[in-house]
């Protein structure tokens, strides 16, 4: 939670002189709206730690009267949350590593190397960003099923290893590295491969890390593809698991364990948000996309 102070105009007067009525109204407005917006998350958090009997009490209490982790144990027992967690970790981890690696290679070629056809291919890659997933998911499903990858980790991950968004984002960063570094490396006898891994990648650690966060988050939060490509409980990711879990428990009004499961599904993304908010916000502001 570090203040991105550099993005704001420098205060012209000491703060105690700047607190005017407009400022006060802004404070109240932002605090009220901020609390309303984040309320669904706070409610899920508090509900997940309530005693099962108190969850549907009327009138509802916001905070648990007695804090208990029982809902988490029930969620863990009633369904395979450990398995969902593993599946989500493997699926998102593989997609993240693949996208970072492949995008670094392609962005390097598009930003530093010179060869015939380069720019045409770049527009082709960027053009793929315009293709909506709804257009390609049925043929992809047919193809992945036909090669026997339905309901496997390969089926969950391989269609997403290439990322046009990653190529675009990393290329923008690579273009900001001075060309002199490349020329100097070549004069020193380093080839392209060594320049990429020993100079360019270490210099771009921050931006590659920012892209890795985007890649992980969008993989973790995927819904439509894991829904259609998995057909057994063992292969479901957290997002799909929580949907089926809710459908089976809803009638029994078992909202405690459902909220515990929801906290497990969004916990990692919330932690990433709190730790890496600055990178996320800058990435979105710069590209106008969310991965």
């Amino acid at each position: 939670m570090t203040a991105p102070a550099s993005t704001m105009a420098p205060p012209k007067r000491p703060r105690f002189l700047r607190v005017d009525t407009t400022g006060l109204v802004m404070h109240l407005f932002l605090l009220a709206v901020g609390l309303v917006i984040s309320t669904p998350i706070f409610i899920a958090f508090f509900t997940s730690f309530k005693e099962p009997a108190k969850i549907i009490a009327f009138p509802p209490h916001l905070l648990p009267q007695v804090w208990t982790a029982e809902n988490y144990f029930v969620a863990w027992e009633k369904t395979q949350f450990d398995r969902y967690l593993l599946n989500s970790a493997v699926q998102s981890g593989v997609i993240m590593v693949g996208q970072v690696l492949f995008s670094v290679l392609a962005a390097f070629a598009f930003s530093i190397l010179r060869f015939p056809g380069r720019d045409g291919l770049f527009y082709l890659v960027i053009g793929s960003l315009m293709v909506p997933f709804e257009l390609v998911f049925i043929p992809n499903f047919v193809f992945i099923s036909r090669i026997g990858w339905a309901n496997t980790y390969q089926g969950l991950t391989v269609p997403f290893l290439a990322s046009a968004f990653g190529v675009f984002m990393l290329r923008q960063f690579f273009l900001t590295v001075p060309k002199d570094f490349y020329d100097a490396a070549l004069i020193d006898g380093a080839g392209n491969w060594r320049y990429l891994w020993q100079i360019l990648v270490p210099l771009s650690k921050g931006s590659i890390g920012a892209f890795a966060i985007f890649a992980f988050l969008s993989a973790w939060n995927q819904y439509l593809w894991p829904l259609v490509i998995t057909n057994s409980d063992e292969m479901r990711t957290l997002q799909i698991g929580i949907r089926f879990f809710m459908n089976t428990l809803e009638r029994g009004a078992d909202w405690g364990p459902i909220m515990a499961g929801t906290m497990i599904a969004m916990g990692p993304t919330l932690i990433i948000f709190l730790v890496a908010q600055k990178q996320l916000v800058q990435g979105i502001a710069m590209t106008g996309l969310k991965g």
Binding site: Y223, T269, Q277
Partner: peptide, 14 residues
């Protein structure tokens, strides 16, 4: 900012 930006990391299923 934290209170207002936070939905950006929440999935559609959640």
């Amino acid at each position: 900012r934290t209170l207002i930006f936070v939905p950006v990391v929440i999935s559609s299923a959640v």
